[in-house]
C-alpha cells in the first residue's frame, strides 16, 4: 500500500494537531461536557453520595433557581464585570490612550507605570490591596482620603464589592490602554486635519470621528475583557474569599465554595454549567457579530 504525497501530508497535519487536541480535550473540552452530566447527579465529596452518586434529573437546577445565594452570585458577577471591565478599565484605559496620543513628554514612563499592575500575579494583587485597604488611620487608602478630610473606612467590610471592582480596574487599565492605543493609531491623521479645517470642535471630533472609527476595537476590547473578568478567581479569593456575607461571591468563587467548602459536587457542577453556557453564548455572539475570519 502506498500513500500519495498529498495524503501523507494531510496525515502529517493531523498528527501534528494530535498532542494539543489530546491535552485540550482531556482537560478542557471533556470536563466541560462532563460538567453537564455531573450536574444531573447528587455527587458529593463526603457522605453517602460520595461513594454512590445517583441521577437526580434537574433537581440541582430547580434548587439552583430557588437559591437566593445563586441569584446573589449572578448579580455580584454582573456588577463586577460591568463595574470593572466595561466601565472602570475601559474609561481609564481610553483616557490614558487618548492622552498618550497628545504630544506629551515621558510617554514611555507613563506607559511603563500603567502597565505594571497588569504584570503582577493575581495572588500578589490581592495581597497588595489588602495593605491598601487596611483599616484604621494608617491604612494607605485611609491616609489618602484623610487629605480630603474623610474619616477612615473599613473598605473591605463597608464597600466590599466596590473595593474589588477598584482592584480589578487597577489591574486591567493597561490592557485596555494598549488595545485602544492600537485602535487610535489606525485612524488616518488626515481625517482629523480635514475636520479641523472645517472648524469642528474637539468634542465633535471625538464623538463624530474617533468614537465611530474606534467601534470595532472597542467591541473587541469589551469581548475580551468581559470574558476574562467573568473567569476571575484568584484575585477575589485572596482578597475576600467571597465575603463578607457573600457580598463579593462572584460565580467562580461560588462554584468553588459550593464544591469544595460545602462538598456538593453535583450542585457545584450545575452552577458551572450556567457559567459555561453564559460564556459560550458570549463567544458565539462575538464570533457571529464580528464575523471572525479564520
Amino acid at each position: 500500500m502506498t500513500l500519495s504525497f498529498e495524503t501523507k501530508r494531510q496525515l502529517g497535519y493531523r498528527l501534528m494537531m494530535a498532542p494539543a487536541l489530546l491535552l485540550m480535550g482531556a482537560f478542557i473540552v471533556f470536563p466541560a461536557f462532563y460538567a453537564f452530566s455531573l450536574s444531573l447527579t447528587n455527587d458529593a465529596l463526603l457522605g453517602f453520595a460520595a461513594k454512590e452518586s445517583s441521577f437526580v434529573g434537574l433537581r440541582n437546577f430547580t434548587r439552583l433557581f430557588g437559591d437566593p445565594l445563586f441569584w446573589n452570585s449572578l448579580k455580584v458577577t454582573l456588577v463586577f464585570v460591568i463595574g470593572s471591565a466595561v466601565i472602570g478599565q475601559f474609561v481609564l484605559g481610553f483616557a490614558a490612550a487618548l492622552c498618550l496620543q497628545q504630544p506629551v513628554k515621558y510617554k514611555s514612563i507613563f506607559n511603563a507605570i500603567i502597565c505594571l499592575p497588569n504584570a503582577v500575579p493575581e495572588m500578589v494583587v490581592g495581597f497588595l490591596w489588602i495593605s491598601m485597604y487596611a483599616s484604621g488611620e494608617y491604612g494607605t487608602l485611609n491616609r489618602i482620603i484623610a487629605w480630603f478630610g474623610i474619616a477612615p473606612q473599613q473598605w473591605l467590610y463597608t464597600f466590599p464589592l466596590f473595593s474589588i471592582i477598584i482592584v480589578n480596574t487597577w489591574r486591567g487599565i493597561a490592557f485596555s490602554m494598549i488595545l485602544l492605543t492600537s485602535g487610535l493609531a489606525a485612524i488616518p491623521k488626515d481625517i482629523y486635519e480635514a475636520a479641523r479645517v472645517d472648524g469642528a470642535t474637539d468634542k465633535q471630533i471625538f464623538l463624530r470621528i474617533t468614537l465611530p472609527m474606534m467601534m470595532p476595537t472597542i467591541f473587541l476590547y469589551l469581548f475580551i475583557s468581559t470574558v476574562t473578568t467573568f473567569a476571575i478567581f484568584g484575585l477575589v479569593y485572596t482578597l475576600s474569599r467571597g465575603g463578607p456575607a457573600n457580598s463579593t461571591e462572584i460565580l467562580g468563587i461560588y462554584i468553588y465554595n459550593q464544591s469544595f467548602t460545602s462538598f456538593q459536587l453535583g450542585y457545584g457542577a450545575a452552577v458551572a454549567v450556567i457559567s459555561l453556557v453564559v460564556s459560550m453564548v458570549l463567544g458565539l455572539v462575538y464570533v457571529r457579530a464580528l464575523k471572525v475570519e479564520v
Partner: peptide, 27 residues
C-alpha cells in the same frame, strides 16, 4: 476540519477555568 477547529479553539479559549474545577478534579 480547519475552520471548525479554529472556531472551537476560540470557544475553548473562553471557557472560564472555575467552571471546570469539579469535572477536572474528577478527571
Amino acid at each position: 476540519w480547519k475552520r471548525p477547529l479554529l472556531y472551537a479553539i476560540i470557544l475553548v479559549r473562553i471557557v472560564p477555568p472555575p467552571a471546570l474545577i469539579v469535572p477536572v478534579y474528577k478527571v
